[in-house]
């Protein structure tokens, strides 16, 4: 469904941030993109969503295809209209609009009243808590509630693929679990594909079917999520576990006895 072929992204004409990224999201799949800060995960998402162009970034090589349509030359609003919705990093609600108005902005792409109402009901079905908050100013909602609104807003466009940038950002562990349960449910019930960027590798690998690991602008490892979760390096560097499944003490880590077995 989504095919990213060997793209290279340059900011301000000089700063090379992605060096040949290829990835694929199949129909109805949840795919995770893992990596540390600055690895280029968000940039990859912005390359797909077209928001890169706003930040003086450009795709200098490769192509991005969604169901055979080239996305890399389209402006962001047209990409959304093709059925690729986004949940931006840090939620990014329209703060002075109410919860329901925020949700309705997501449905502006089709503009049909009956359809909007149906989609609203669907969002309230996934996030019952939002129904009571519908007339509240979005800027004053809690972090978790805002994340729900952001995901709901993406759903309102009736998308086929949702790009999610760190839905766990700044949320309490219990809430993270909640949000990911709902993400899984949305995926199963409405068959939307999801490309998930996460720092929280643990929860991401439990949710996704397939995962890619990025470091310094490259994909260094990929495979089915269950396999990656067993990979010794992933365990060590992303899940913070030793082979026995115990937490490791900082004293052992700081000597860097183990080296990563891939080339970064």
């Amino acid at each position: 469904m989504l095919k990213v072929n060997n793209i290279e992204v340059v900011y301000s004409d000089v700063i090379l941030v992605l060096r040949g990224i290829s990835l694929e999201v199949g129909d109805g799949q949840i795919v995770a993109l893992l990596g540390a800060n600055g690895a280029g995960k968000t940039t990859t998402l912005k390359a797909i969503s077209g928001l890169l162009k706003r930040e003086d970034g450009a795709i200098t090589r490769g192509s991005i295809e969604f169901d055979g349509v080239r996305l890399d030359k389209l402006p962001p609003e047209e990409i959304t209209r093709l059925g690729v919705s986004q949940v931006l990093e840090g939620r990014r609600l329209f703060q002075h609009l109410t919860t329901e108005e925020n949700l309705r902005t997501g449905a502006l792409v089709n503009g049909n009243r009956a359809e909007t109402r149906r989609l609203l009901e669907q969002v309230y079905h996934y996030f019952p808590a939002l129904k009571n908050l519908r007339h509240r100013t979005a800027g004053y909602l809690s972090g978790g509630e805002q994340q729900m609104v952001a995901i709901g807003r993406a759903l309102m466009a009736n998308p086929r693929l949702i790009l999610m940038d760190e839905p766990s950002l700044g949320l309490a562990p219990l809430l993270v679990q909640n949000i990911f349960d709902i993400i899984r449910r949305i995926n199963q019930e409405s068959g939307v594909s999801i490309l998930l960027v996460e720092q929280n590798a643990n929860v991401a690998l439990k949710t996704a079917e397939y995962a890619y690991v990025m470091e310094t602008g490259r994909i260094v490892l990929d495979g089915p999520a269950t396999e990656l979760a067993q990979n010794a390096d992933i365990k060590e560097f992303y899940l913070g576990l030793t082979q026995l499944g115990e937490r490791k003490s900082y004293r052992d880590v700081k000597h860097y006895k183990r080296r990563k077995r891939w080339l970064g």
Partner: peptide
Amino acid sequence: LAMRATAEDHETAQSVGIRI
């Protein structure tokens, strides 16, 4: 609604598909 959303944040408005 599209105008109020755009007034708040151009980038987010584009990301939800508003032709700003």
